[in-house]
């Protein structure tokens, strides 16, 4: 069974958005699922849940250091060594308070690392392997915050912008292969990451996950989730500076 079922790998598997994607993937098929995180106990609880939902699925757990290039390299090599993968979702990220980051350069560096460099390194490691297999979908979660630098979150946003350029480069590089590369840009979503933000309407994590899973199945290069954010960000990206700079966003 293991050899025929779809192989899915989630990096940052304790993310609420990723967890709900996993639930959807398991809801109508048995999957060979690998969960990669830094927190074993939390990931075991997620794995137990998914196993109840889908008793036939095979669920593996790996932990690694997300900020260490060597560790990332080894982790991806270990994953690929078992079997080629159909779908990879890179989901980790963190959203600290922008003003706090302005006072603390090392926190700023960590934010750029975990939201920008780390997902790029994972993507790079998988891309090379997937190119050799000439097969699979590599999906990375960026953010609408990466579409234009804003005073309220430019540290996070610029790291997400890095992810966007990186994915764009990979899409260009793999355009003539069977490997698909997808950038996912969620809008504000009710998850632990945004629990401290008040007075902002949030999408439901179930809806965002559904949008992502459908988009990946459809082979889309860019997924805004929910889709209305494509239009909103189109406008925000094109606002003239003189107007944009007057906005408190």
């Amino acid at each position: 069974m293991t050899n025929t079922s779809k192989r899915i790998v989630i990096i940052g598997a304790t993310s609420a958005i990723a967890e709900h994607c996993a639930r959807l993937w398991l809801s109508n098929q048995s999957v060979d699922l690998t969960l990669v995180s830094r927190d074993l106990a939390k990931t075991q609880r997620i794995a137990a849940d998914l196993q109840v939902r889908s008793p036939q699925s095979v669920i593996r757990i790996l932990t690694t250091d997300f900020c260490d290039a060597q560790a990332i390299q080894h982790c991806v090599a270990d994953i690929i060594a078992i079997r080629p993968v159909h779908t990879v979702l890179i989901a980790h990220g963190t959203l600290p308070d922008q003003q706090a980051l302005q006072q603390d350069l090392s926190a700023c560096a960590e934010t750029l690392m975990i939201n920008g460099i780390s997902p790029a390194l994972f993507a790079e490691a998988f891309a090379t392997q997937m190119q050799q297999a000439n097969y699979g979908t590599l999906a990375v979660i960026g953010s609408v915050a990466g579409d234009r630098g804003r005073k309220s979150n430019y540290c996070y946003g610029s790291a997400k912008g890095l992810v966007e350029r990186f994915v764009e480069g990979l899409q260009h590089r793999l355009a003539h292969t069977a490997v698909k590369v997808t950038l996912i840009k969620p809008g504000p979503t009710a998850t632990p990451m945004t629990a401290h933000i008040r007075n902002m309407p949030m999408a439901k994590v179930e809806d965002v996950a559904q949008c992502i899973v459908t988009g990946i199945a459809g082979g889309k290069p860019i997924i805004y989730a929910p889709t209305k954010w494509a239009l909103i960000m189109l406008i925000i990206r094109h606002l003239p500076r003189c107007i944009f700079h007057k906005m408190n966003i």
Binding site: A16, R45, I46, A48, D49, V52, R53, P55, P192
Partner: peptide, 15 residues
């Protein structure tokens, strides 16, 4: 959001 299953026993039906 405390919405995870923990264990299900197919023989006894205890969830």
């Amino acid at each position: 959001s405390l919405n995870r299953f923990i264990h299900f026993d197919d023989n006894t039906g205890c969830l």
